[in-house]
Nucleic acid binder design. Structure first.
Lengths: 104, 104
DNA sequence: AAATCATTTAACGAGTTGGTTAAACGTTAT
DNA sequence: ATAACGTTTAACCAACTCGTTAAATGATTT
């Protein structure tokens, strides 16, 4: 999943699909690589569950499926406190997760 | 960045660091791989900016730096609308491409 | 039926990743 | 000074990634 997102071409493909479904050739058009290369990228995205294929005739139409990205969002947001809060809040968070008997 | 997150061991290291800084040996302890392997993972995280190293004596203390994760969060959240509206969008698209009169 | 089109598969090569063990490096302790 | 410790570097290997070109597949058009 994260490795599917790790390649810039694949992120660009997702961005393109955010504007609507497209065929493999349409998806490949903006890129300077061969069609088989794009085909492989699409397979990677499909296997990561980020892309759904619908074959109608000889045209494979690809559509974005962002559902798995929710997991990535969940993962990343667990760390949100570490970049949004101040050091005080960070300390509070540390204390909340690993309570330390300080007094009382 | 995404490729740094792509390896489960590295995500586990980040999770561990979320509880506070730790030395390389401490970080390596829970894993069944050799110390050099962990050392490399730490280097990858460090190069991705997710980890800061402080050498004091012969001990390298590693601390989480979640700031770069903000970029990942930004990326992922651009797609949030696609998984919050997924059911409607998918239904509409399915109906448009393969019209299946199920209810009228 | 033959040609063309959209796409994938096959086979290959260069470079990277993720692991290993052995050795090196610098720090601390005896 | 010597030994032990924490960590990295070196050298190596197997497996994977990302790209290529050439051929195959299957659908459509002529």
């Amino acid at each position: 999943m994260f490795s599917a997102l790790a390649h810039p071409t694949r992120r660009a493909l997702l961005a393109r699909l955010a504007d609507g479904p497209a065929s493999v050739t349409e998806l490949a058009a903006p890129f300077a690589v061969s069609l088989p290369a794009i085909s492989k990228h699409i397979s990677v995205l499909e296997q990561a569950g980020l892309l759904q294929r619908t074959q109608s005739g000889r045209v494979h139409t690809c559509a974005l499926d962002a559902a798995p990205l929710r997991d990535a969002a969940d993962f990343v947001q667990r760390y949100q406190v570490f970049w949004t809060q101040t050091l005080d809040a960070l300390a509070a968070y540390a204390e909340a997760t690993a309570p330390e008997p300080e007094s009382d």
